[in-house]
């Protein structure tokens, strides 16, 4: 337990210190929103209509872009060896890495969401469903993403490979997450069902991603 806490605390410290990736992911997220708005044009009603899907897509892409760092830095400086050698259960360690990634990427994205939502003229009724869906869905993104990062840990420039691997696996979370945000804003009775399915997808990821990550990390050691 002490080791798990230490890993999470260390990864957070590294993410928020100079050279860490957390601020960049948030900045990237904001940039995606702005680019979308510029591409669509200053039609306020159209922008506010696509605001929630754009924010969901942005959160997904910002997560994706930060995945590469989860394990690779540790592998390059040798600390992954230490982490693996001292882990009693590698899947617990893998889960800790995913939690650290969510705390340093997913959570800041959620905190930044209201600001981006203002820029994109999101309807007032849509804020709570959007934030709630992100809160339930982004941990799933971190979990699945950390698995892809573990698969590609031995490759020097893996961002692209990770994106190819992870995109199809992200689809259910995107569908249920954006679906919940839209249904909630519209007062649609499907809101609850979407949120439950989203929660189920994240729980499923929580159950399987650490096992798969541990297997991938072990295979990458040899």
């Amino acid at each position: 337990m002490r080791a798990v806490q230490a890993i999470i605390a260390r990864d957070l410290r590294l993410a928020f210190r100079a050279g860490g990736g957390a601020p960049q992911a948030v900045a990237f997220f904001a940039v995606i929103g702005v680019l979308f708005a510029l591409a669509v044009g200053p039609d306020l009603s159209l922008i506010s209509k696509i605001a929630a899907p754009v924010i969901w897509t942005g959160a997904l892409l910002a997560t994706q872009i930060s995945l590469d760092q989860i394990y690779r830095a540790d592998r390059e400086d040798g600390s992954l060896d230490v982490i693996i050698a001292t882990s009693d259960e590698l899947m617990v360690t893998a889960a800790a890495k995913a939690v650290a990634h969510w705390l340093s990427t997913g959570l800041p994205l959620i905190i930044a969401t209201p600001v981006l939502a203002i820029l994109l003229n999101l309807d007032r009724d849509a804020y709570v469903p959007l934030l709630l869906s992100l809160l339930i869905g982004t941990p799933g993104l971190s979990l699945i993403g950390s698995f892809a990062a573990a698969l590609a840990v031995a490759l020097p420039r893996a961002s692209l490979l990770i994106s190819i691997i992870v995109s199809p696996l992200y689809i259910p979370i995107l569908i249920f997450g954006a679906g919940a945000a839209a249904a909630g804003a519209a007062g649609d009775p499907q809101y609850g069902a979407n949120l439950s399915l989203l929660g189920a997808a994240t729980l499923f990821a929580a159950a399987f991603a650490p096992i798969a990550s541990a297997a991938a990390l072990r295979s990458n050691q040899d």
Binding site: G179, F208, S219
Partner: peptide, 22 residues
Amino acid sequence: LAAILAMVGFVNIPIIKFSVDW
């Protein structure tokens, strides 16, 4: 690694299929 990915993908196919139908 490819085997791990194939198994993960296979487990996810029904979920993806369901989500797309939904």
